[in-house]
Amino acid sequence: MTLPPALRLREVGFSFPGRTVLAGLSFDVAPGEFVAVLGPSGGGKSTLLRLIAGLLPPAAGQVLVQGTVVAGPRRDVGMVFQKPTLLPWRTALDNVLLPAGFRRGASAGERTRAEALLAAVGLGDSAGYYPAQLSGGMAQRVGLARMLLHDPDLLLLDEPFAALDAMTRERMALVLQKLWQERPRAAVFVTHSIQEALLLADRVVVLAHSPGRIVADWPVPLPRPRAPETMATPEFNALALKLRRLFDEVAA
């Protein structure tokens, strides 16, 4: 018997009152596969992740994670939100430890792991800071560390690096790649950046607007680990250009 896909969308549709956001959306994510979702702003990418996370029920179709229908939030799915969504009354370290029940509820091992994750995202010496003392980019990295502490089998990332400057952004993408390569698992990574998508993903899915539907589903056959040099290769640039053209068509 083969493994079920880590994620399967079957004709998924969703509407907010007076507005169809997603319609007839179907795709699979294999175990260990990193999929980037590109799409125009307001195209329903965050809504799609909320459906997968079990935070919203689909109006039509089905969302299956590891072969079972999603009926609510699950332990094996973790999300990084588009906004940092940190608890302002908890330190960075405690925010990372939220999935474990904060410092008091966490085991010694979880605490060590939380500190290691903070260090991995470059916040080793900001563990004691409160969210008000963090920049937008730092807060977002705390959110990433929090999701990784949860250690899900399916990663959902909603433009996690959008608030970061270009340099940090690229560095964080490489940090994410490293953490993911240490333990490869299925990931749905929403982004606006073609470069970021190509740097991280095994596959790129492009959504069109109103209602959100798939217009392209392309593999990214670039060797790993990818590095800044990868972005200078002809293969990378050819793919980037192809995506860029498609994007302009979709947006027009």
Partner: peptide
Amino acid sequence: TDPELIEMARSFSR
């Protein structure tokens, strides 16, 4: 309460 904070906590199965 910011609904996104509630959603975040729910997403971690709290």
